[in-house]
Simulated scan of single mutants.
Amino acid sequence: MTENTAAIPADAVAARLVDRAPPKWQPYLRLMRLDRPIGTWLLYWPCVFGLALGAAAESRPFGTLKDIALVALMGIGSVVMRGAGCAFNDIVDRDFDASVARTRGRPIPSGAVSVKQAIVFTIALCLIGLVILLLLRNWTAIILGASSLLLVAAYPFMKRITWWPQAWLGLTFNWGAIVGFAAETGTIDSAALMLYAGLICWTLGYDTIYAHQDKDDDALIGVKSTARLFAERSKDWIFGFYIAAFTLVLAAGFTEHIGSIYVILMLIAGGHLMWQVRQLDIDDSAKCLKLFRANRDTGALIAAALILSTWIG
């Protein structure tokens, strides 16, 4: 096995961008998880939701030049800050990762990137993220965006102190919904907070599914998760989280007076969530990973519901 192959995590997706990059770059691109784009999508979609809901709050269709610029900035920011968060997480979790079959091939535990190199790389990504934040030119959004670093910094330690690290991930990964709404409107209202709460429930569902891949290794090394906490009751809990997510995201749209077409479009997204629950087998790691990745499509359906509803009314 070559060094590059050994450095590829077991659940990685083949990515031509990473595989065709110069060999010296590849470990850093994998440290950013560019070979595993699902996390970037799950960080990005809440930003789009917040932007679209912000347009609805201003009673206008989503799609102005400002909206397009913000979508682009949020997209770049999601790639960069997801990379920074993953790098920091790997620095903190390097000993845990070395003990888990699925993660021991990551750049730090495999030796492809040193801890010092990872720290410098993380700082560089954070500085790029700061530049992107400043380009929003909205101090409410900039301050909110910068404050997310507190959530990011605390996340790797949550699995050591609470059975609910997935809840903290929800707080962290969906912060972009708040930032996106503020970037559009310059403020935060009850609809934005309902959207945020609903997305936290969404994350609790999909990340519990994801955590079932590692539950045996986690039990051996003492890592806590909702997958271990809920155990055989996980399917019921995930169903409950998805119902709460659907209800709160729907209510957020109603609060901003989005038209009835929103209900029809959201029912499609809700059906996709219920499909995940029906298909779930918590003892089938491959299926858990497939269903976790399917939430990229859930996000696309919610984004379509919000954006199209601002057009149709």
Rank of each mutant, 00 (worst) to 15 (best):
Ala124Asn: 03
Ser190Asn: 06
Leu193Glu: 00
Ala245Thr: 02
Val13Gly: 02
Gly270Ile: 04
Pro156Arg: 11
Arg16Pro: 06
Ser260Lys: 09
Ala211Thr: 07
Ile178Arg: 01
Gly77Ser: 08
Lys24Ser: 13
Leu42Ile: 05
Lys66Ile: 06
Lys224Asn: 05
Cys126Met: 12
Ala21Cys: 13
Asp95Lys: 15
Gly240Asn: 01
Leu229Pro: 00
Thr185Cys: 09
Ala192Pro: 07
Met81Thr: 06
Ile161Tyr: 12
Ile302Tyr: 10
Arg278Met: 03
Met1Glu: 14
Ala303Pro: 06
Ser59Asp: 14
Ala294Met: 14
Phe96Ser: 08
Gly253Lys: 13
Ala244Pro: 02
Ala15Leu: 11
Gly85Pro: 10
Leu53Val: 06
Thr310Gln: 08
Glu232Met: 02
Met74Ser: 09
Ile238Gly: 02
Asp218Glu: 03
Asp189Phe: 04
Ala12Asn: 11
Pro46Ser: 11
Pro46Lys: 04
Gly180Ser: 03
Ala21Thr: 05
Tyr242Arg: 12
Trp25Tyr: 11
Val131Phe: 11
Leu280Pro: 06
Leu267Met: 09
Ile142Pro: 00
Ile8Gln: 14
Leu125Phe: 00
Phe241Asn: 02
Ala197Asn: 01
Tyr28Pro: 08
Ile209Glu: 01
Leu125Trp: 03
Glu256Pro: 01
Trp41Asp: 06
Leu301Phe: 11
Asp297Arg: 15
Arg94Leu: 03
Asn295Val: 12
Ala84Glu: 11
Asp35Asn: 13
Leu169Ala: 08
Phe121His: 04
Val71Gln: 04
Ile108Arg: 13
Cys201Ala: 15
Leu73Gln: 09
Leu144Asp: 04
Ala286Asn: 14
Trp311Leu: 15
Ala10Ser: 15
Gly63Gln: 08
Leu53Tyr: 10
Ala303Ile: 07
Phe62Thr: 05
Ala183Cys: 09
Thr185Asp: 02
Gly75Tyr: 07
Leu265Pro: 00
Gly270Pro: 10
Gly180Phe: 09
Ile91Val: 14
Trp175Tyr: 15
Gly180Tyr: 02
Asn4Ile: 10
Gly180Lys: 13
Asn295Met: 10
Asp281Trp: 00
Thr64Met: 14
Asp67Gln: 10
Glu3Thr: 14
